[in-house]
């Protein structure tokens, strides 16, 4: 990336500590909302269908089914309004952009969970 762009963002954009996530993962985004001068936190839980962009302007899109209607929401990763991100499930998918989920519903729209053998990794460490 351009050195000037990197320098400016190092100065202006705050650092964020989030769990690593990618397309296919199920996450909860806790997002700050200002309503009539009052601030509250709204959580949005769903599957990540894409991560887009690079550096400090990158975004990710979360898709969920709300009352039978698909809802997608795109968040800028470095937005100061993102309070926190929780990783609920790691998905087992073969591609980076899961647009095919839009045409699917019900059982076929589910993402298989990637099971990590925590005991084995603990021993390895």
């Amino acid at each position: 990336m351009n050195a000037a762009v990197q320098f400016v963002h190092e100065q202006l954009t705050g650092k964020k500590e989030f769990p690593k996530f990618k397309a296919g993962d199920n996450i909860t985004v806790n997002y700050k909302i200002i309503e009539g001068g009052k601030e509250r936190i709204q959580s949005f839980r769903g599957d990540v269908i894409k991560r887009q962009g690079q550096g400090h302007t990158a975004t990710f899109t979360v898709r969920k089914i709300s009352d039978g209607v698909g809802v997608e929401r795109t968040f800028p990763i470095y937005s100061p309004n993102i309070e926190s991100i929780e990783l609920n499930k790691t998905g087992l998918v073969r591609r980076a952009k899961l647009y095919f989920l839009r045409e699917r519903s019900g059982k076929s729209a589910r993402i298989k969970e990637k099971r990590v053998n925590t005991a084995a990794t603990a021993v390895a460490q």
Partner: peptide
């Protein structure tokens, strides 16, 4: 071009 966030979360397009 890039963009920066203000304190209240508004994103502004800008050029260095």
């Amino acid at each position: 071009m890039t963009s920066i966030f203000s304190q209240d979360g508004k994103q502004t397009a800008c050029t260095i």
